[in-house]
């Protein structure tokens, strides 16, 4: 980063305190909103904690349960909000609807938001940086197979790739295929195979073999 020695501050250039222009701008806006009683620091803190409270472990728990309970899987795919309530996720109060799409031996789903960064945050937490990147948002619709190859996934030619561009009022969660050789695993062990990326669709779930070799 460049120091602004001429005393003239430009966006993106660090000030004397090492913070970028926008970081300092954001601090100024928050300080003013608090000073004017528009909001409190406590409210901001609480909202931060609420965002951090959700992570891909939530989505993984849902997927693993769907793998072991066929009835739950059917309910999850047809009407996800009440199904998720069975696991203690009270999403009915959120305004954003969720749809779960199943990857099979015939169809592979991949999720993107080309217009901004719509993402099933209620089950996955914050989206990764790459999901919000200009390159992913452009290429996931035009060249989904090329994008998935970059993530190490070669989808066979006979498998149909369906890209979901979630630009409107729905958010999509991918239910990945259950890996082979997992018949004897517990729900908790299965959940460890369910990565954030496989619930976006850029990869498959981990196989127990790849887990063992990476451990």
């Amino acid at each position: 980063m460049t120091e602004a020695h001429d005393g003239h501050q430009h966006p993106g250039i660090d000030g004397d305190d090492g913070q970028t222009y926008y970081a300092r701008r954001a601090q100024a806006i928050e300080a003013l909103l608090v000073a004017k009683g528009i909001c409190t620091t406590g409210e901001v803190q609480l909202a931060m904690e609420q965002v951090e409270a959700r992570s891909p472990a939530d989505g993984a728990r849902v997927v693993a349960h769907a793998w072991v309970d066929a009835g739950f899987k059917t309910r999850l795919l047809s009407d996800p909000i009440p199904a998720l309530a069975e696991l203690g996720y009270a999403l009915a109060e959120t305004t954003t609807q969720l749809e779960v799409v199943e990857n099979t031996d015939e169809v592979h789903h991949l999720v993107v938001c080309t217009l901004c960064s719509c993402y099933p945050s209620t089950l996955l937490g914050r989206p990764p940086d790459w999901y919000k990147s200009l390159a992913y948002r452009s290429r996931a619709v035009a060249d989904p197979r090329g994008v998935m190859r970059e993530f190490g996934l070669n989808v066979a030619e006979e498998v149909k790739v369906r890209v979901l561009d979630s630009t409107a009022d729905l958010r999509y969660l991918v239910l990945p295929r259950r890996p082979a050789g997992t018949e004897g695993l517990s729900e908790e062990e299965l959940a460890k195979l369910v990565t954030r990326d496989c619930m976006i669709g850029v990869t498959d779930a981990l196989s127990p073999v790849s887990m063992a070799s990476s451990a």
Partner: peptide, 15 residues
């Protein structure tokens, strides 16, 4: 110039 199989699709939610 789509590179993949003809069966591939994209789904968009449209008002």
């Amino acid at each position: 110039e789509y590179h993949g199989p003809a069966a591939d699709t994209v789904l968009v939610d449209i008002y």
